[in-house]
Simulated scan of single mutants.
Amino acid sequence: MSISAYVFDAYGTLFDVHAAARRHAERAGPDYQLLSEIWRAKQLEYSWVRSLMGAYTDFWTLTEQALDYAFQRVPSVDPALRADLLDAYRTLDCYPEVPAVLRHLKARGARVAILSNGTPEMLKTAVDKAALDTMIDDIISVDAVRIFKTAPAVYDIVTTGYRLYPQSVSFQSSNRWDVAGAAKFGFRTVWINRHGMPDEYRDLGPDLILPSLEGL
């Protein structure tokens, strides 16, 4: 079946989640990378746990809570950086190849969308800052169903909204757990393995593995 829509995860796939801490690395000190890693890990953990509990809280709130936790784990970083780090997270850098790849897909006549845990406001701000707004048809947030990935209801937003079979959607994510969820739902999946990580969820493998979005 031909591909009718290319749907992208946002954080880690289009946008570099560690760019916020890197932007303030000098002020944060040598432990800025550790802070960023804990921040990201807890942000995701909170989303999974709240989905399992049925206690939805939007992703921006989880991002704030995860940063507060990271400060406690990494006391060498001054919590006075909180506001600046959060502002930087709203305007994360996109990966270098992203604009050209999205522009190429649009030129081919493909429908291009984001499907993300992020709130609509978070996603619009990031897209506008990176000047990707003319290359993306739709920004789809889990706020619509009030549960996070990898719940099937999230991926179903795309097939229901676009009136497509899952097999006609190509879903791209750098998050292996997200790829597993999308594969289980029936999407054609592309794992953007930017850091050469080992495979997981071998029973829910991707259709394609790429080191970046180039090659789509």
Results as ranks from 00 to 15, higher is better:
residue 155 Y to S: 12
residue 15 F to I: 01
residue 36 S to M: 02
residue 29 G to R: 01
residue 148 F to S: 09
residue 15 F to P: 00
residue 61 T to G: 03
residue 125 T to V: 13
residue 212 S to F: 11
residue 91 T to G: 04
residue 132 L to S: 04
residue 165 Y to M: 13
residue 124 K to R: 15
residue 216 L to A: 15
residue 179 V to S: 04
residue 115 L to V: 13
residue 78 D to V: 02
residue 139 I to V: 14
residue 119 T to M: 08
residue 195 H to R: 13
residue 216 L to D: 12
residue 32 Y to A: 00
residue 114 I to D: 08
residue 214 E to Y: 00
residue 39 W to I: 00
residue 111 R to N: 10
residue 94 C to K: 02
residue 176 R to T: 06
residue 113 A to H: 07
residue 51 S to L: 07
residue 171 F to Y: 15
residue 33 Q to I: 09
residue 165 Y to D: 14
residue 10 A to V: 00
residue 183 A to S: 14
residue 83 A to H: 11
residue 126 A to E: 02
residue 77 V to W: 01
residue 86 L to Q: 10
residue 114 I to V: 15
residue 101 V to M: 00
residue 165 Y to N: 12
residue 22 R to D: 03
residue 193 N to S: 10
residue 4 S to L: 14
residue 33 Q to L: 11
residue 80 A to Q: 12
residue 121 E to I: 11
residue 86 L to N: 06
residue 183 A to I: 02
residue 39 W to M: 00
residue 7 V to F: 01
residue 84 D to T: 08
residue 67 L to E: 04
residue 109 G to D: 02
residue 27 R to G: 06
residue 166 P to S: 08
residue 192 I to Y: 06
residue 51 S to M: 06
residue 179 V to T: 06
residue 107 A to W: 09
residue 162 Y to W: 14
residue 100 A to T: 10
residue 12 G to D: 05
residue 197 M to P: 04
residue 95 Y to W: 12
residue 163 R to F: 11
residue 106 K to H: 10
residue 95 Y to C: 07
residue 140 I to Y: 07
residue 191 W to C: 01
residue 136 I to P: 11
residue 24 H to Y: 08
residue 32 Y to L: 00
residue 195 H to K: 14
residue 190 V to Y: 06
residue 102 L to W: 09
residue 92 L to E: 00
residue 142 V to K: 00
residue 31 D to G: 05
residue 127 V to A: 12
residue 173 S to Q: 01
residue 132 L to G: 02
residue 195 H to S: 14
residue 193 N to R: 05
residue 73 R to T: 07
residue 206 P to Y: 03
residue 40 R to C: 02
residue 88 A to E: 09
residue 61 T to S: 12
residue 202 R to Q: 07
residue 18 H to C: 09
residue 99 P to R: 10
residue 89 Y to T: 01
residue 98 V to C: 04
residue 142 V to I: 02
residue 153 A to F: 03
residue 87 D to T: 12
residue 160 T to I: 03
residue 150 T to M: 05
residue 123 L to F: 07
residue 188 R to N: 13
residue 105 L to R: 09
residue 18 H to T: 10
residue 128 D to I: 08
residue 112 V to K: 11
residue 14 L to G: 00
residue 9 D to L: 11
residue 85 L to Q: 01
residue 22 R to M: 03
residue 165 Y to S: 13
residue 58 D to N: 15
residue 205 G to I: 01
residue 30 P to G: 15
residue 25 A to M: 07
residue 172 Q to M: 15
residue 66 A to Y: 04
residue 179 V to M: 10
residue 6 Y to K: 04
residue 4 S to C: 13
residue 122 M to I: 09
residue 30 P to T: 05
